Simulated assay, not measured.
Amino acid sequence: MKQYFITGTDTEVGKTYVTCKLLEAASQLGHKAIGYKPISAGCDLIDGEWVNEDAASIQKSNSIDLPISEINPIALTPPIAPHIAAVEADVLLSDEKIIKGLGSLQTYKPDLLLMEGAGGWRLPLNVGDETKPTRFLSDVVASIGMDVILVVGMRLGCLNHALLTAQAIRGDGLNIAGWVANDITGNMTRYGDNLASLKAMLPEPLLAEIPFGQQPSDDRLALAIEQLC
């Protein structure tokens, strides 16, 4: 089994979209693929159950049918920072709960397991003294030792965001398996030059490029799955 943590240079950069496309590509190549989003914030009440839109997308992209509660065990209602939503709901964002959910999915013995984060790399899990967080989701990932896939939202400022995020991941002792360039605006000035700069400055492989408003190349996704699996 290969498993990876998918993070992004910021929130709303396409982590879920990339997760789903990789899951679907893996399934098309005959792999059993499962996605896991341990923490979400922003849910709608559907048939008596709080459902996060991103988690529901992952559920549909899995190669086996699983209940949403297994894919997203911590579903917080308001669309705000999860550690703040958790305090309001009196919910503990614990390592144990996150790792237990991962272990539950591992029992299905998938060929590929993708765990999607929330927000960026340093997502607070708790509120300590004077509301200062003392634990981050990245700490959990580091404790597991998962390789990381970095989704870069291609827009002004992405070079700084990508390099700092990659530096933080490596500084936490983790390996970056590769990165994905996701054009999230369609109007980035000198897109090609910025992409070339990222290729030059990030030593890890570019797994895929996602054009704005278009499906990524099936061939490129297949190649990415070949590299990951």
Results as ranks from 00 to 15, higher is better:
K2D: 00
T7I: 04
T9A: 10
G14S: 09
G14Q: 08
K15W: 11
V18D: 07
T19F: 03
K21D: 07
A25V: 09
A26S: 10
Q28N: 15
L29Y: 04
K32Q: 15
K32N: 13
I34P: 10
I34H: 09
D44P: 02
D44G: 12
L45S: 14
I46K: 15
E49H: 01
N52D: 02
N52C: 09
I58P: 14
D65L: 00
D65Y: 01
L66E: 05
I68W: 02
E70Y: 13
I71S: 01
N72P: 12
A75T: 12
P78L: 08
I80E: 03
A81T: 11
A81I: 03
H83I: 02
A85L: 13
V87M: 08
A89P: 13
E96A: 14
K97A: 15
K97E: 12
L102V: 05
Q106V: 11
Y108V: 03
K109Y: 07
K109G: 07
L113H: 06
A118V: 15
R122Q: 14
L123M: 14
L123E: 04
P124R: 07
V127R: 11
D129P: 05
E130Q: 07
T134W: 11
D139E: 11
V140D: 12
I144C: 03
G145D: 13
D147P: 13
D147H: 08
V148K: 11
V151W: 09
G153T: 14
M154Y: 10
G157F: 12
H161F: 14
A162G: 00
L163T: 00
I169A: 02
R170W: 11
G171E: 06
D172K: 10
D172H: 02
G173N: 07
W179A: 04
V180L: 05
A181P: 06
N182G: 00
R190Q: 13
Y191F: 15
A196V: 03
S197K: 02
I210Q: 00
I210C: 01
P216Q: 05
P216K: 00
S217T: 06
R220H: 04
I225S: 05
I225W: 05
L228E: 08
C229Y: 02
